[in-house]
Nucleic acid binder design. Structure first.
Length: 492
RNA sequence: CGGGAUGUAGCGCAGUUGGUAGCGCACUACGUUCGGGACGUAGGGGUCGCGUGUUCGAGUCACGUCAUCCCGACCA
């Protein structure tokens, strides 16, 4: 498939459009014919699978096990936790019937009114309710705790407005749900999982994140505390990339999950939940991509190295032979590599296409260079080309992949840090927020101030960040005393 | 759910005062090419979103309807 790169270059003018085109052209995903839903194409799914594998291992290292709970949730479950239902009621898809029948004119189907469900079923928007309804049966004693379950699944939230990967009606995610005997243990777990997410984002996705805790209004429905990682996209907007919630005893009480503690006292179980979704794909794309297309971190790239031969008829056999050796050696080192000797596409086309897809390293195996024992190596992050001796090329590539991984992370950190500002003047803030960026501002802690900022600037309090030293000051909006600076930004 | 726009080939679009459907890319075949998105020749592909109406005649006009996209509000 040929693609016009020129279409991708005007991202400062219309970042959303650029993002959308990139996702489609790089063959990651596309809009489904179903409202608000997305088709993830094989290349995009391969990246998601890599993410899953890494995250899954990281979870397991902390003692978490995978399980699976039903897609459909009885309506009554959702109403058991007051705040929770408040938060999700507006965006639930509801199953009301279980059968269709052919219509009177026999050219279509209609819902069979006789098949109406006694109690409607909700397609899960998140699984706290059905999982805690199950935990009720599992938990009798402190000896049954903790329970540390995770599930990889799809969820559905009937969003008004959707965007590929960032917000689709159906999305893939993992949701962890833990039950604990003590408040301390649950709080510790919520923070621990946030750290896992932050580590994954930074070490694997090469996306720097700011960890923090959400304000009350931005909290997950039913949580006592919501911890978040916030990443900055190249247009200066924030993307909430993962959340971990301390749920207190809210769900324990709502679903009557009681146990006998060590002191033989009846107590409600303490809960956490935490999740990351295919939205991470959006973070990956919007953090690193450039005008030539995707830039993937080597640790998550489905294809790390591509080899393109250039030669005429009789030279090809020799190039094929040489490539075979390199491919074999790279694979032995655990590096994924493709030798693309398809003769129905010209080299120039292949170069552009693999750049669009973000393959970290490209080798050009040319008959001309090969005589000198050289091969051209191009790194996707800087687009720099270098002629390297074919002897020991495998080690060179391995080191280069590591360097690319580090370089794109550093680049993202530099970009982000250059766009974080301290600001103490609201008028100034209102002007500067238009250009994006993260603002560290004193906040008096009131909902009124928060609402006013949102109303007047479309920016929200992303979190109270952990990584910056907190100083007391004066709220820039209300002039009232403030305990700390919070992170404010426009967000996806 | 409010405001705006758009539905014509897989994608992007043109289609004049109503007169029988067109361009670019992609696709298929053959040939020449192949060191940064090749070119030539020949092809295939459309009930113009759907419905009703006006008319001798509707992609074009009217009314209705459905869908999608963008901007808000809501959200991972």
């Amino acid at each position: 498939m040929a693609t016009e790169l020129k279409d991708l270059t005007k991202r400062s003018e219309d970042y959303s459009k650029w993002y959308n085109e990139l996702v489609v052209k790089a063959e990651l995903a596309e809009q489904a014919d179903v409202r608000g839903c997305m088709v993830i194409r094989p290349y995009g799914y391969a990246i998601w699978e890599k993410m899953q594998r890494v995250l899954d291992d990281m979870f397991k290292e902390t003692g978490v096990q995978n399980a699976y709970f039903p897609l459909l949730i009885p309506k009554s479950f959702l109403s058991k936790e007051a705040e929770h239902v408040e938060g999700f009621a507006k965006e639930c898809a509801v199953v009301t019937h279980y059968r269709l029948k052919t219509n009177e004119t026999h050219d279509g189907v209609v819902v069979d009114p006789a098949a109406k469900l006694e109690e409607e079923l909700i397609i899960r928007p998140t699984s706290e309710t059905i999982i805690w309804n199950t935990y009720k049966n599992w938990i009798k004693s402190y000896r049954d705790l903790p329970i540390l379950c995770n599930q990889w699944c799809n969820v559905m939230r009937w969003e008004m407005r959707t965007r590929l990967f960032l917000r689709t009606s159906e999305f893939l995610w993992q949701e962890g749900h833990t039950a604990h005997a003590t408040r301390e243990e649950a709080e510790e777990r919520a923070k621990q999982m946030l750290k896992v997410y932050a580590k994954f984002a930074e070490e694997y996705m090469a996306v720097p994140v700011i960890q923090g805790v959400k304000s009350e209004t931005e909290r997950f429905a039913g949580a006592l505390d919501t911890y978040t990682i916030e990443a900055m996209m190249q247009d200066g907007k924030a993307l909430q990339s993962g959340t971990s919630h301390f749920l207190g005893q809210n769900f324990g009480k709502a679903f009557d999950v009681q146990f006998l503690n060590k002191d033989n006292q009846v107590e409600y179980a303490w809960a956490t939940s935490w999740g990351v979704s295919t939205r991470l794909m959006g973070a990956l794309i919007m953090t690193h991509s450039d005008d030539n297309g995707l830039v993937l971190p080597p640790k998550l790239a489905p294809l790390q190295v591509v080899i393109v031969p250039i030669g005429k008829g009789d030279q090809m056999a020799m190039l094929d032979e040489k490539a075979k050796t390199i491919v074999k050696n790279l694979k032995a080192m655990g590096i994924s590599v493709k030798y693309d000797n398809a003769d129905n596409k010209r080299p120039g086309f292949k170069f552009a296409d693999y750049e669009l897809k973000g393959v970290p390293v490209r080798l050009v195996l040319g008959a001309r260079d090969l005589e000198k024992g050289l091969v051209e190596v191009m790194r996707r992050d800087t687009l720099e080309k270098e002629n390297v001796s074919i002897e020991g090329i495998e080690t060179y590539i391995k080191n280069l992949l590591d360097e690319i991984q580090q370089n794109i992370y550093k680049k993202a950190v530099t970009y982000r840090d250059a766009h974080i500002y301290e600001c103490d003047n609201y008028e100034e803030f209102k002007e500067r927020i238009k250009d994006g960026g993260f603002f560290l501002c004193h906040w008096d802690g009131t909902e009124e101030t928060e609402a006013r900022i949102k109303e007047e600037t479309q920016a929200t309090i992303r979190c109270v960040p952990f990584m910056f030293e907190q100083t007391e000051g004066v709220d820039m909006v209300s002039g009232k005393p403030a305990k700390a600076r919070v992170l404010i930004a426009r967000a996806y």
